[in-house]
């Protein structure tokens, strides 16, 4: 008779092994900016693939999970702290695929563990590439709001400088809120050159769009998505984060406009 606490861990991990694996998995997935419903579905899928049941409590910065095997009375509990990293749909995609590979029996437990480690080491896109793409995007955004070519160029320059400062400040572990105020302030000052030197015909649009790259769109969308699935705690937390960052953006914007003597409306 085999001891149920000793695992045939290639195919049948113990509840303890699986809870540790899932706590790492969930912490990584939540940190990458996944919605709560996806986290629930993926984690439950993995647990069921190993013949176990899972209950999850998702808090804004922590995940609490309990796992038990069908027919056993004892449950194993683990608490994981969210792994903070930049929002990454690449990691989100890979972790979702991993959950299906486990569910479809394409990976044994050890391979899945190694795969999870590899996904954790994936680097983000090069900063310079992101900088160029965001610059062009904000210039295009300026055009969508009716900006002329001069406005697009100035908004692009304001974005490039602001985004570069943001990257430098966040790499030096400066508080995100302080970084947002500083970037918004600098971008506003640069965006205001259209008004000051009468370069183009749409200076108000230039200054308005020069800070839009800072609007925390993904956290806002995640927040509303969590709300629809009744994950109110995470929804409120994400909405609060996004509101605070939008507030910081506005503080920098108002300060920059006051300094340059430009009215908002």
């Amino acid at each position: 008779m085999t001891d149920p606490t000793i695992s045939d861990s290639y195919s049948h991990p113990t509840a303890e092994e699986l809870s540790l694996f899932l706590s790492r998995y969930c912490a990584r997935l939540l940190g990458a900016g996944a919605t709560c419903i996806r986290l629930e579905k993926n984690a439950t899928r993995i647990a069921r693939a190993y013949g176990m049941e899972l209950e999850l409590t998702i808090m804004p910065r922590h995940i609490h999970l309990s796992i038990w095997r069908d027919g056993h009375t004892g449950a194993t509990t683990a608490i994981a702290t969210m792994r903070h990293c930049a929002t990454s749909f690449d990691i989100n995609t890979r972790l979702s695929r991993l959950s299906w590979e486990i569910a479809d029996g394409k990976l044994d437990f050890h391979s899945a563990s190694r795969q999870l480690d590899r996904i954790g080491k994936i680097s983000t896109h090069p900063t310079w590439a992101t900088l160029i793409l965001v610059t062009i995007a904000n210039a295009a955004f300026c055009r969508l709001f009716g900006g002329d070519p001069a406005a697009m160029i100035i908004a692009g320059i304001a974005t490039a400088v602001g985004f570069h400062i943001k990257t430098c400040l966040l790499n030096r572990n400066v508080d995100t809120r302080a970084a947002f105020i500083a970037c918004s302030f600098v971008s506003t000052i640069l965006g205001a050159t259209d008004t000051l030197f009468s370069i183009g015909d749409t200076p108000a649009i230039t200054i308005g769009t020069s800070v839009l790259y800072l609007v925390p769109g993904i956290p806002l969308l995640n927040s509303f998505s969590d709300m629809l699935y009744r994950h109110y705690l995470c929804a409120i937390s994400r909405a609060a984060d996004a509101t605070i960052l939008t507030g910081c953006l506005s503080i920098g914007l108002c300060a920059g406009m006051s300094l340059m003597g430009i009215g908002m409306f």
């Binding site: 930049a86 990454s88 749909f89 690449d90 995609t93 995007a137 295009a140 969508l144 790259y213 993904i218």
Partner: peptide, 17 residues
Amino acid sequence: LFAAIAATGFAAISNPP
């Protein structure tokens, strides 16, 4: 066209595949 450019650029911030 401009919406496509904006979406592509802003997508870069969230590191998609």
